[in-house]
Design a protein around this nucleic acid. Structure first.
Lengths: 247, 247
DNA sequence: CGCTGTGTTGACAGGTCTCAATATAAGTGG
DNA sequence: CCACTTATATTGAGACCTGTCAACACAGCG
């Protein structure tokens, strides 16, 4: 299995050997935690960022009426907690969904990396813009959309990201998310998530169970969601086109 | 009046004289456009970013059923179109609200700036993380929130940003936004925006007209919105603390 | 074995959208 | 300056969607 922790950094331009070793030279402590554990709570002081290496983590901000809003579902390779580096109190609560492993990177080490390795810093900049596009798409999928559109968009979003992680990904999503979590991510109650999933099922768009949702009609889901698939492009304008046929 | 175009770059660490001149050395053509003009449309090729110097610009992504979703309301000093640098087709439509002036920065020049001036690149990285926090807050304000919460959050968001631009900002928001635009930003119909604004007015939370909304009870609005005010912190962990009292 | 978390279904209330009509304001051309 | 057109704001009635409350089935786990 390829090293998933470099996956995102390689997305817009391949790291060279020097950059890889530079990245691995960052001091980072590894943690493995169980299901439903808090990595960092909203309001906690911000003195590090995290790199998820195994498992799933959700990132939530406290919304009104005690209902929390999931703003990001993290997969292996994702940097976590990065938005809060501009704050003294963390904006998001990071919580494990199932067993997961992550690395903690001290803010000082992270800062040194950005300033002393500008080409890595530039990749982090691009990844952050990518996250912005994803958040923009999620707002569009939630803003004025009905429950079926919201869920269709979320499922496709997860599917597209799993495909980037594993090219052999099938349309069957093995996800550890409950209907409560799907509700917190879409701004719906878990009850209505249930009803809507069954409606999508009746319409032949999906099949299977919540933990193994099969996307039966991906074009239909995409049309329903109203969100097109994003084509991330390599950043030749930044790093220059690869001289030879390098990936 | 201070140069608003450097406002955002100075937010996390003051630029030194060398960095300022470096920034001004970027080739950029200036444009002034009228009300309701498209700067760049969703789907257009991405070969530049923009810097807004005067006026207001909205950034929309096409949502379902022809209803568009506003994902960002740009104020002077904002970089525009940056999320799309990771795409070949622009994700957002940039449209002027009233007369406005902006600069066009070619992607190649932008890339050179990032790689050759890492300390400016680092500031862009921080600004992008800041935009992520803002988008996360907007998702939280829209996801599972009622109309009054959505509008309260949007008004406070605009107020907080106007305060950063002008420390003399009063609680009276002189904004060029119509109720249709407020609806597109909150995921509500303009009709319901109208009803909700009048309800907020009846509750004594706001007063005045749509173009000059007075926030009469800011703590009350903040409590209603459920979104706390963000305290952006200077990035001493990145640039080091200022040696002397350099503001 | 009981317990907790999760999924499922029904009835009802409340919020928001839609359609429709009108008033007001803003801009345009004579 | 006025008449005209357009954009924006406002209000009402009804339909639809989603939330709330309640109850129950089921699985995993101590």
């Amino acid at each position: 299995m390829a090293d998933l922790s470099l996956h995102r950094l390689n997305e817009f331009a391949e790291l060279d050997a020097d950059e890889i070793s530079r990245f691995h030279a960052i001091p980072s402590e590894e943690f493995t935690i169980a299901h439903n554990r808090i990595i960092r709570r909203e309001g906690d002081p911000v003195d590090c960022v995290y790199l998820l290496t195994r498992g799933w983590v959700i990132s939530c901000v406290g919304a009104a009426r005690g209902r929390r809003q999931i703003v990001k579902i993290h997969l292996p390779g994702d940097m976590m907690g990065a938005p809060s580096v501009v704050l003294s109190e963390a904006a998001e609560t990071l919580e494990s969904v199932g067993v997961c492993t992550y690395r903690r990177i001290d803010l000082a080490d992270f800062g040194r990396l950005i300033l002393e390795a500008p080409r890595i810093g530039a990749r982090l900049f691009l990844s952050t813009q990518q996250e912005r596009v994803i958040l923009m798409d999620r707002i569009a999928a939630i803003g004025a959309a009905s429950a079926d559109r919201r869920l269709a968009a979320l499922l496709l979003h997860l599917y597209d990201r799993l495909c980037l992680l594993d090219p052999a990904q099938t349309p069957v999503l093995h996800i550890p998310l409950t209907q409560v979590i799907l509700g917190e991510a879409t701004g719906l109650t878990s009850i209505h998530v249930n009803r809507t999933l069954r409606k999508l099922q009746a319409d032949g768009l999906i099949a299977g169970t919540t933990r193994a949702i099969e996307l039966r009609d991906i074009p239909g889901l995409r049309k329903l969601s109203g969100i097109q698939k994003r084509q991330w492009r390599r950043a030749d304008w930044l790093f220059g086109a690869p001289a030879d046929g390098t990936a």
